[in-house]
Simulated scan of single mutants.
Amino acid sequence: MSDSNTTDFTNPSTFILQGIPGLEAAYVWISIPFGAIYATALMGNFTILFIVKMEPSLHQPMYYFLCMLAITDLVLCTSTLPKMLSIFCFNSRQISFSACLTQMFFLHCFSILESGILVAMAFDRYVAICHPLRHSIILRNSILFKFSLALLLRSTMLILPFTLLARQWPYCRSNIIPHTHCEHMAVVKLACADIRVSSYYGLFVALSVMCLDMVLIALSYTQILRAIFRLPTKDARLKTFGTCSSHLCVILAFNIPRLFSFLTQRFGNNVPLHFHIFIANVYLLVPPMLNPIIYGVRTKEIRDRLLRLFTHKWT
């Protein structure tokens, strides 16, 4: 072990990402599905962006939010996957102190941004179903821009203290991070200082964002369901609810691994470390892969445009 792992130092020039401790022998095999997930996420989200850009009929609030979701997913997986694959395939574990804090910022900032986008999409479905005649007025382009800017500012202002606090701690225990990426608590636990401020603030942000966003989504869908059940026929109710099905699937794909990861990290003291890390990676990597697939399969407009694209290409 190098001296940098045991000697006192403050703000080390580099950290060492350990990967998934205990599964080193399987790194090459783990890299195969992770690489496939990354390739699928890139292809799927870029396809969504291309289709919405090229199809004028999709220039609507729902699809603008979908494009925001695709961009967020691309940033999330790209901020972690390339470095993770370099660990698994090439044993390239070093990451500079500044790069580690930058990865931490983008990772947590865009996770909160994605949660906010799902709230915005729920609000869009609420307006489209409960106030269809006012949809274009309520969600006009200027409002969409302000809404998007507010979500980005919320994410940035909540996560900026993470990196500022992490930068000012002295790191004199070790520079080895037992993780595949610079997750906030995995980094600050290396500090030889009282990190309760970072720990409590992280817990506050996680709980407040998760609870607030889920309450807002639940309120939107309560109103949506009330409007659906007032429709006169079963076919009308099913058709209207079908417009929300993609969004509901995306919410579940994002929040179930997220909640499970949060609970195991905070309360799963008897859970093996490699399981903690594996679940944290699933939370970050699976939604970017599934989201474009869900919307591509369940949204008729995108599915039809994609079919026309391939039909035109091969004829």
Rank of each mutant, 00 (worst) to 15 (best):
A236Q: 15
L219V: 06
A236D: 15
H184K: 12
V197Q: 05
I177N: 02
L207I: 07
L190P: 04
F241C: 11
S208A: 13
M185E: 08
Y201T: 02
R226V: 09
F204I: 11
Q223T: 02
Y221I: 06
R230D: 13
W169H: 15
F162R: 02
S199I: 14
Y171W: 09
M185Y: 04
V205P: 01
H181I: 10
R237F: 12
A206I: 07
N175V: 13
A191F: 00
F162V: 00
Y221L: 01
L164V: 05
Q168L: 11
T233Q: 07
V197L: 12
I217R: 07
C172E: 10
T222Q: 04
M210V: 14
E183Q: 10
L203E: 11
V187C: 05
M210H: 15
L164Q: 03
F204C: 08
A193D: 14
A166S: 02
K189Y: 10
C192Y: 08
A191H: 01
A236N: 15
P232L: 08
S220G: 00
V187Y: 01
V188T: 14
M185S: 12
V215D: 01
S199F: 12
A227V: 04
L216P: 07
S174H: 10
L190T: 05
H184N: 13
C211P: 03
R226H: 05
P178I: 00
L207P: 00
T163Q: 12
L190Y: 06
